[in-house]
């Protein structure tokens, strides 16, 4: 498995997520798409941690865990974000009785 294949998977995953986030009307679908983009980034980080090492540490690359630590952080933050996002979705549904993003334009004015 080469480094590039990880990046290609991650890029495909990111583009699917981006498309979903931009194109879907349903807020839940948008949130799920954002999750996809997060995970694409996580894959990239972990892959880079495995294949690329900072200058001066090439010999001992297995000890460098920066990428993995970032990935764990992102998973945590994403969990918090999705909890908050779902809370907003509930609030929106309760007031507007819809989860359609195109109708959430009150902040325009």
């Amino acid at each position: 498995m080469s480094f590039e294949s990880f990046l290609i998977v991650a890029a495909i995953l990111f583009c699917i997520g981006l498309y979903g986030a931009l194109a879907r009307r349903n807020v839940l679908a948008v949130l799920m798409s954002i999750e996809l983009m997060f995970n694409a980034v996580n894959i990239t980080l972990v892959a880079m941690a495995k294949y690329l090492a900072p200058a001066g540490l090439q010999d001992d690359i297995s000890t460098v865990l920066t990428g993995q630590v970032f990935a764990v952080f992102i998973i945590t933050v994403a969990a918090a974000e999705i909890a908050l996002g779902l809370g907003i979705v509930f609030a929106m549904y309760r007031t507007d009785e819809t989860v359609d993003l195109s109708e959430a334009i009150q902040m325009r004015h």
């Binding site: 986030a21 931009l22 194109a23 993003l101 195109s102 959430a104 334009i105 902040m107 325009r108």
Partner: peptide, 14 residues
């Protein structure tokens, strides 16, 4: 240009 459509904004940014 200010439509309130978040997704439009995001598209432009992207």
């Amino acid at each position: 240009f200010q439509t309130g459509q978040v997704q439009t904004y995001a598209t432009v940014i992207a």
